[in-house]
Design a binder for these strands. Structure first.
Lengths: 343, 343
DNA sequence: ACCGAGTACGAAAGCGCTTCCGAAAGCGCT
DNA sequence: AGCGCTTTCGGAAGCGCTTTCGTACTCGGT
């Protein structure tokens, strides 16, 4: 068994095949200008010797790097870990490597990580996770990414319509509307929204959907309590405490992601408030544990794993004249956490 | 605003700082042979210009590669996503990049990914996830990894005592024993184990702990039903169905990880079997949702995020003469899924 | 004032690869 | 036979960095 790795260089292969370094390089990278016959011989020899190109040398010399950079808010958040799973899956099939960084929902941290990835010369960048409502916050990110694309980098984003790049767009607004319809259909009129920080577009989009549903039924969205706390489990707990104190008439809570919904359920459990008996609760995303909560959570299913695959798939295609957009679709999954409004 | 990335080279920084390329390199990498004064100036200028070294050039020129390869079974499994979170966290602090691959609990796939990482010349490899009980399955992996270390690569593993490398070892056996003690203390005598496939050392170790607890109390571990199914949620469901059919006297189920425990709870719920009224259930790992299940899950807490950090930390130190081992410790977390044996 | 040791820095040689450029060879024409 | 054209290949110039080696300079000791 020929051992690959350190010490085996392209020039060794070239010599053994009786050709020059240049020819060997062309043969292996499939450039033309080499006769089929010679190219075959080189490939053959390279295989026999177990040659693997040094990616550092290759990239340095001008070839494109074969690694994809993935930026997520937090990989141990199920929403992102499922997306990452999809990206890694497809990347594995294409034998690409995936570099993951955390942005921690912090625009400046995100910017740093992007700069880092670009400096590392990754050929593909995938940015997952909500954008920021304030255009100023994103303007620098946008210009950095535009520079990256202009320099030949491929970019795909998940859930950020504000960037002019190939995008996978979760059905946030339509999903929000479906949740609203569902609760209104069950008779709820005093609905509170447990939202993440208002600067996330994911939050504003989903809220817009809920509001649309309410207007469609002659209800006034402006009268609906909206609590902006952190877009994580703990935020759900905090918001719930405030709802119980300040809006005691509430019969249904819409949490804008499943993590927050879990916090909501946990707080309600502590207060011994029956779900859905006295309070209905819905989430958004359908992370894999949503079905195992107590009670199991009514939520909007987003195909996270596929979203990851789709994003990488877009990035692997050559760039289109206009940015491509892929909507994900969504599905209302009704489980045990919602019921008719209490009598 | 200085734009970083492409086009900005060390020599630009050097010129701006009025020093030679060599000096700039030394200053930035903290080599000595440069006066403090000059080094400071170079660092200052480099910061101002937003310079980031090209890792390809750096690695090619002989510096160590600054990326770490992380192999997990599946990143969208909470156990691994939390470990990955820890690795990425620490890597971010050290401005290292993390490349993640899936092994999918498949030894040959794992081997492929390792070869791939090695060919990419990553400087550090972290292998997370259970090893395989059958030494033959791991022998090739072992030899590949030994070659990697001999060539100067740094390796750390999480939960694989069979590899002679720096290791973070979860307290599997002691945790298993603690679970056994807990249930026995509650009066349970008819305990069934819902185990993953027997070829995973994680499974055998945790089982050994449970058996030890039983023997310590004069019970015969051999009489205890052990169901080997897939080490995931669905395996827990399948195993539970069989327990209910074949071992109706069972009053407590030990699932060897939380994912399986979730499957167990789900199956019990379908059968309307009250937990812990008629059946106590425990898990292992304490993934973050364990507290939010219904009922909340009694389990063994493993510090997954820290385990990721510790592994990378070990790998960042220079190799020791003998492999280092770090035990993780564990903690029994008693929640609502366990109670006294039914009368 | 001179010497050896030490310190601070610059010049230049690669690391392994891709790619530009030019040479050589083969071809159909006139 | 001579011309231009294409095809196939080798020579060599980098890519941006680290590191070895050499040079200039300083300093305490004689």
């Amino acid at each position: 068994m020929p051992k690959p790795g350190p010490g085996l260089r392209l020039i060794d292969v070239a010599q053994r095949a009786g050709v020059s370094l240049a020819t060997a390089s062309r043969a292996l990278s499939g450039r033309d200008g080499v006769s089929e016959e010679v190219a075959d011989r080189v490939r053959q020899v390279s295989l026999e010797m177990g040659y693997v190109a040094n990616p550092y040398a290759r990239t340095l010399a001008g070839g494109a790097s074969s690694t994809v950079g993935l930026v997520v808010h937090q990989v141990d958040d199920p929403y992102f870990s499922e997306i990452a799973g999809g990206v890694i899956q497809l990347a594995g099939e294409q034998s690409l490597l995936v570099q993951i960084c955390h942005s921690g929902r912090d625009p400046s941290q995100e910017l740093r990580q992007l700069r880092n990835l670009i400096a590392q010369r990754v050929g593909i960048i995938i940015v997952a996770g909500s954008g920021y409502s304030d255009p100023r916050v994103e303007s620098e990110t946008r210009s950095v990414l535009e520079g990256y694309e202009r320099a030949g980098g491929r970019l795909a984003v998940i859930g950020r319509h504000s960037l002019a790049a190939d995008a996978v767009l979760p059905d946030n607004e339509a999903g929000g509307r479906a949740l609203g319809e569902h609760l209104i259909g069950l008779g709820h009129r005093n609905i509170a929204i447990v939202a993440g920080t208002a600067e996330l577009t994911t939050v504003t989009d989903r809220m817009a959907g809920v509001a649309a549903a309410m207007r469609a039924h002659g209800l006034d969205p402006a009268a609906m309590p909206v609590l902006h706390t952190d877009f994580i489990r703990e935020g759900g707990r905090v918001a719930t405490e405030r709802i119980l104190r300040e809006h005691p008439g509430t019969t249904a809570i819409i949490a804008l992601n499943d993590a927050m919904a879990m916090g909501v359920l946990s707080a309600l459990r502590e207060h011994r408030i029956s779900v859905p008996g006295r309070m209905s609760v819905v989430g958004f995303d359908d992370v894999s544990v949503a079905a195992d909560l107590a009670p199991s959570l009514t939520t909007i299913r987003l195909p996270m794993t596929d979203m990851g695959r789709m994003a990488l798939d877009l990035a692997l295609k050559p760039p289109a004249a206009r940015p491509r957009r892929r909507r994900t679709g969504h599905q209302l999954v009704v489980r045990d956490s919602t019921g008719p409004v209490p009598a």
